[in-house]
């Protein structure tokens, strides 16, 4: 288990604003839990592969080509499919000819509209067979089964309204997914390395309190963000390691 992510945790001062072509906080969190996390992250910068999410189910490969080819030459598009119905279920992988083109897509096309949906784009360590299938109970993406809103472009309600409201009402949305492994100490301990907001604020009285304690900055400068959100929302989206039998 690698809880620190080497260069990905390093604080750098070489840009005046943050870069958009960095692994998302979701990818970072996943990497922290994974023994090969760091390797995967490094791989995601050179794999020339991206994950595209929040697509409409009706968006075709050709539409994706039309938009994404503006960032570089596309080698392959792999549509995410419902593992039972073999129909598009709202995500895809795009493999470009060059890693730079994939980074461009992350920088330039994230959060733009395709088919009226604001698409999300993330780096990806590389496509493996089997990942094109949704890993939700119904065959689609897990995130769709958790959503509350009606979304015609993504199959309406995943579970009929009445069914969803009754048993889940008043409960945290993702209770069923939070149990077991993820809630154990191992998981918690990694995040305990991060200062919380309150802590950061209480360290100094003035805005720029002087330094009277000299630790080794390089050793500890891990984690640019404050405590990462622990909600399971993004966790359960995409990244389908399920291989259909």
């Amino acid at each position: 288990m690698s809880s620190t992510l080497a260069e990905f945790d390093e604080l750098k001062w070489d840009h005046s604003v943050k870069r958009l072509d960095k692994p998302s906080s979701y990818l970072l969190r996943k990497a922290r839990r994974n023994p090969n996390g760091l390797q995967d992250l490094r791989q995601s910068l050179v794999s020339a592969t991206i994950y595209v999410g929040n697509l409409s189910f009706y968006t075709s490969e050709e539409q994706i080509y039309e938009l994404f080819s503006k960032c570089g030459m596309i080698k392959r598009i792999i549509m995410g499919l419902d593992r039972f119905k073999f129909t598009p279920c709202g995500f895809c992988f795009i493999i470009y000819n060059e890693p730079k083109e994939a980074l461009n897509a992350v920088k330039y096309l994230s959060d733009t509209k395709l088919d009226d949906k604001n698409i999300t784009i993330d780096l990806d360590p590389g496509f493996e067979d089997g990942r094109q299938f949704g890993r939700g109970k119904n065959g689609g993406q897990v995130s769709d089964e958790l959503k509350f809103e009606y979304d015609a472009a993504r199959g309406g309600f995943a579970i009929p309204l009445a069914q969803r409201i009754a048993p889940r009402f008043g409960q945290p949305k993702h209770m069923p997914h939070r149990g077991g492994r993820r809630n154990n100490n191992r998981f918690r301990s990694q995040f305990d390395n991060y200062p919380t907001n309150e802590e950061a604020m209480s360290t100094g009285k003035s805005r720029y309190s002087g330094s009277n304690n000299t630790g080794n900055p390089n050793e500890l400068a891990n984690g640019e963000e404050n405590i990462p959100e622990q909600s399971g929302m993004q966790e359960d989206e995409e990244e389908d390691n399920y291989v259909p039998q």
């Binding site: 604080l11 001062w13 005046s16 604003v17 301990s189 305990d192 390395n193 991060y194 200062p195 802590e199 950061a200 360290t203 100094g204 805005r207 720029y208 309190s209 002087g210 330094s211 009277n212 304690n213 000299t214 630790g215 080794n216 900055p217 500890l220 400068a221």
Partner: peptide, 23 residues
């Protein structure tokens, strides 16, 4: 034991607060 929070060195903390203000 609940592991202790790793404290960020004050100089790093200072930079984290000050540099964004400069930007």
């Amino acid at each position: 034991r609940v592991p202790k929070r790793q404290r960020i060195p004050p100089v790093v903390q200072l930079c984290k607060e000050m540099m964004p203000d400069i930007c």
